[in-house]
Design a protein around this nucleic acid. Structure first.
Length: 901
RNA sequence: GCGGAAGUGGCGAAAUUGGCAGACGCACUAGACUUAGGAUCUAGCGGAGCAAUCCGUGGGGGUUCAAGUCCCCCCUUCCGCACCA
């Protein structure tokens, strides 16, 4: 609230002079009071009238470009304090880069599709669109109140047709290129919601909204995007992203989960032969399973095969069983006429399902059951019993493994439990003669690959690596195996049975089958006034005007696809749209994207390390391949900021420890709130929000305000005279202050270029302000002109240094001292190494490593001078008295250590 | 279980390279001022001790003239991965 006695001009701004009072120099109670609410609201209104200030120049600009981006928020209705932190980091950087002379693109938008809008619609009976757009309007106002330097002309909301039509356009391009396809697949289904859930909405096997409701699996036809086509490139590309945190790259590597190995086909022995085999041939080392009365399937035939995937084909002579996933098709076949097996497999399935739901797949007790069937090891003709086990995952590899107990931890555990043979086929390489400490028997399970094969036929005595190559080649030659690369990454299922998303632009015609919507019929508009219920299934399916369409091919009746796209589609390419947000002929112009991309600096939370950041990389590669962009990667440098926590815990409504940005801004102002977000700790760490800390930063800003305001009149004069204090002519006081100034400029400039430790940047400004304030009474004794000139050479750069962190206060003070240009375009101050250099430094003197004195010397003092100075110190002399100096360690300008005995 | 990060005053933290541990801020203490304000100013503030001085960066060893920083072992917290064959 502006004080009522402050006069306003016609445009609502305050003429600079009316808020100043002239006082005697030096801190005092007669200073003008810092009123952030008044200053900030006034400048916010002014900035709103100058949107061109925040607009980037086109690609014809002669400045170097810089694209800084914070992750776009979901318009939930309220900014939370984590957003404020995220945007404060990005905004400081954007403002700094403008001041450094860059052409800066700094946009903002809204990830506006998604389930919460539908939930809100149910709860409040508000259409999702109205709810979302209302939230956007409110959050935009919050951002503007914070003073963030966004170019609102490039703003986008993914729920608007001028954006999502391009999702549809890209989908059609992918369809043309075989990158989008349809297949039957399992989906997560919450019986309570009556709707399908995205994988990321399944928490510990339960619905995120109904934490006690187990999610079911249902089989549905789904659209998929072929991200696996890019698995290899997505993986290799990680090595070319040095500007990304190692943590994120590791997480993506794990997610892609490449493993190289081989598939090998084992013939399944005919059931009749199997029985004969028991009697006739060698019983071998494979013990009979504990069950005696299992039925032998009648339908088995000799041509049946089981294919396993292994990364250790070199251990295949040590295989003593085959393990199948409970869902493996062969198991179903075996169980067809075997009730006992069927019921045992059922319980294995149940165990696996429970483990998945409890998110404890890795820890369940291993169980298995013998199927009564055998497979033939193609390398040595041995009969291996085929088991079903609860720890084998159908979705990985082939859903079947060869079990080598001696050389695999899981197989070892399983074999021990069921008494299966454990056969050693790999031994450590000997580095010398055998000794008692180096017995032949390795500790089992032994899985080192720098080892030698034994008991492996013609492959014995080979090294593991070499054996892998030779054995894979042997399998390939004999047509029972091949080298295989397996990825954990799965194709991206993008169908969602929800209303509030991008309609998938496809029609189903009885005659023509799947028919893409022609480009000239885009966008497929999302109908409004759709009833959202908890009945389940796609709400769009209940809108006949939407569903019933005409087939573009035959003109006959066709049915529209009623699923919508995953909202991660929206955020996979939004940052390209910012470069050309108004384009109605294309998603964006190639030239503009080529100029701005890759993004120079992307800033967001680490929670997006996998999904969003991997989908975006995929989308960029896809766009490159369809000729829409030229870059391989969307983001050059990625920064993941830490969380904001309160009292050591994550903020949550139930804990009642939520910090409201509005509240902070109302109490302390936006400048203090954002400066605190940067001052409390380094941006990468978690920040424990302490309101007292905000108050402290607010007091600091107030000190700066009062300091500058005490001298505003003098500075306006000095600025007209255009004088600068020259260091040579200045008093020692002035020299010390100028030195501190240049050290501060250097420090902050280095912080921006390097580690982004803005906490120390702001601390450095505090130190500078403290020094200037402490010197104020002495400066008052100087001649008026000299004092004004000196203060001008200190305070003008001080305001510039403050601009990225407290832009409102900086703008206000800049104007108060008579400047008229915008700080956003004002050059960042330069530091002068000569002025920053100390004339005299304090060097610690140690005796036997213990501090005994400090000596003042010139920074370039030679060793002799240093030693002399050290020895002339009384305390040093006392502590070495009666002892012999055996060594003198001198690190120039750093330290003197006298070693005595 | 595997991998990563971290552990420094009452609190948030600083200390880019092995070189004065605790900058800056919060809280606190004492004082000043006052139109009593979510003020402001001055001084103090790791622990022990009157002091000289000693001790002190999760714990224990080590390297070094010198270790928060490097090496080895251990503890705790957070994060990621976790039957991936």
């Amino acid at each position: 609230m502006p004080p009522s006695d402050v006069k306003k001009t016609a445009d609502g701004t305050h003429p600079a002079a009316t808020t100043t009072v002239t006082t005697a120099p030096g801190p005092g109670t007669q200073d003008v009071r810092y009123d952030p609410a008044e200053i900030e609201v006034r400048w916010q209104e002014r900035w709103a009238r100058q949107p061109e200030l925040y607009r980037a120049e086109g690609h014809e600009s002669n400045k170097p470009k810089y694209y800084v981006l914070e992750m776009l928020p979901y318009p939930s209705g309220q900014l939370h304090i984590g957003h404020v932190r995220n945007y404060s980091i990005g905004d400081a950087l954007a403002r700094y880069m403008w001041m450094q002379g860059y052409n800066v693109l700094h946009p903002m938008g809204w990830d506006a599709f998604g389930l919460p809008a539908e939930n809100a619609a149910l709860k409040n009976n508000t259409p999702p669109r109205d709810w979302t757009l209302g939230n956007i309007a409110h959050m935009r106002r919050q951002m503007q109140r914070i003073g963030l330097s966004y170019d609102w002309q490039t703003e986008l909301a993914t729920c608007l047709p001028d954006y999502y039509r391009w999702n549809q356009w890209f989908f059609l391009r992918m369809l043309e290129n075989g990158l989008a396809y349809r297949k039957q697949s399992k989906v997560n289904w919450c019986p309570e919601c009556g709707t399908v859930l995205a994988n990321e909405q399944v928490v510990n096997g339960c619905c995120w909204r109904h934490e006690d409701t187990l999610v079911e699996q249902r089989d549905l036809e789904q659209w998929f995007l072929r991200i696996t086509n890019y698995a290899e490139e997505l993986l290799e590309g990680l090595d070319k992203l040095p500007g990304w945190p190692e943590k994120v790259r590791t997480m993506q590597r794990n997610w892609i989960g490449k493993s190289e190995g081989a598939t090998v086909e084992f013939a399944v022995e005919d059931a009749t032969l199997a029985i004969e085999g028991e009697n006739g041939r060698r019983q071998g080392k494979v013990p009979l399973p504990p069950a005696e009365d299992y039925k032998v399937g009648q339908s088995s035939n000799a041509s049946q095969k089981v294919k396993v995937f292994t990364t250790r084909i070199d251990t295949i002579f040590g295989a003593t069983s085959i393990q199948l996933a409970p869902q493996h098709p062969l198991v179903e076949e075996f169980a067809q006429n075997d009730n006992r097996l069927r019921s045992e497999v059922e319980s294995l399935l149940e165990e696996q399902k429970k483990a998945r739901e409890a998110d404890a797949v890795g820890t369940i007790e291993k169980h298995g059951v013998f199927t009564g069937h055998f497979a033939i090891n193609p390398f040595n003709g041995e009969r291996l019993p085929i088991w079903v086990a609860n720890y084998i995952l159908l979705e990985y590899g082939t859903g079947a493994v060869m079990s080598v107990p001696a050389h695999d931890e899981r197989d070892y555990e399983f074999a021990k439990k069921y008494g299966l043979e454990i056969r050693i086929v790999v031994l450590p390489r000997r580095t010398g003669e055998p000794s008692e400490k180096d017995p032949d028997e390795p500790v089992l399970p032994y899985s080192e690959e720098d080892s030698l094969l034994i008991n492996s036929g013609e492959f014995s005595a080979l090294g593991c690596q070499e054996a892998q190559h030779k054995m894979t080649a042997y399998a390939a030659e004999n047509k029972f195996g091949e080298a295989t690369v397996t990825f954990r990454l799965k194709d991206w299922g993008v169908s969602r049975q929800r209303y509030w998303g991008t309609p998938i632009p496809v029609l189903y015609c009885e005659k023509d089958g799947i028919v893409p919507v022609p480009d000239d019929q885009l966008p497929v508009l999302l109908p409004e006034n759709v009833e959202i219920t908890q009945q389940g299934g796609s709400p769009l399916a209940k809108v006949p005007e939407f569903v019933n369409a005409v087939c573009p091919k035959c003109g006959g009746a066709a049915r529209r696809e009623t699923d919508t796209m995953d909202t991660f589609v929206d955020s996979s390419w939004y940052f390209y749209r910012y470069t050309d947000a108004q384009n109605s002929n294309a998603p964006f112009s190639m030239e503009k994207a080529a100029y701005w991309f890759p993004i120079d600096q992307y800033i967001g939370g680490v929670e997006h390390a996998i999904l969003h950041l991997i989908y975006s990389r995929f989308w960029t590669k896809m766009m490159r391949d369809i000729g829409q962009v030229r870059n391989d990667e969307p983001v050059e440098r990625l920064f993941t900021q830490g969380m904001v926590i309160k009292d050591g815990a994550k903020m949550s409504k139930s804990k009642g420890n939520v910090v409201s940005p509005d509240d902070m801004i109302a109490r302390y102002g936006a400048d203090a709130t954002r400066a605190y977000a940067l001052f409390a700790t380094t941006p990468d760490r978690d920040l424990d929000w302490q309101e007292d800390g905000v108050a402290g930063v607010s007091r600091f800003l107030s000190r700066v305000y009062r300091l500058v305001m005490r001298h505003a009149a003098e500075l306006r004069q000095a600025s007209r005279n255009g004088e600068q204090t020259s260091a040579a002519a200045a008093s020692p006081d002035a020299q010390a202050l100028l030195r501190k100034l240049h050290q501060t400029i250097r420090k902050i400039t280095q912080d921006f270029a390097g580690r982004w430790h803005f906490n120390t940047s702001i601390a450095a400004i505090m130190e500078l302000v403290n020094e200037i304030t402490a010197a104020e009474p002495r400066l008052a004794e100087l001649a008026a002109e000299e004092s004004a000139t000196l203060l001008a050479s200190l305070l003008r750069p001080l305001i510039l240094l403050l601009a990225p962190f407290a832009p409102y206060l900086a703008a206000e003070l800049w104007e108060q001292i008579g400047e008229t240009d915008s700080l956003l375009r004002h050059p960042w101050p330069q530091f002068d190494e000569n002025l920053a250099r100390e004339e005299e430094i304090e060097v610690p003197v140690q005796v036997n490593g213990k501090l005994r004195a400090l000596v003042r010397v010139a920074p370039n003092a030679d060793n002799e001078t240093l030693q002399k100075a050290a020895l002339s110190e009384e305390k040093v002399r006392v502590s070495i008295a009666g002892k012999q100096i055996v060594k003198v360690v001198i690190v120039p300008a750093k330290l003197i250590n006298l070693v005595v005995r």
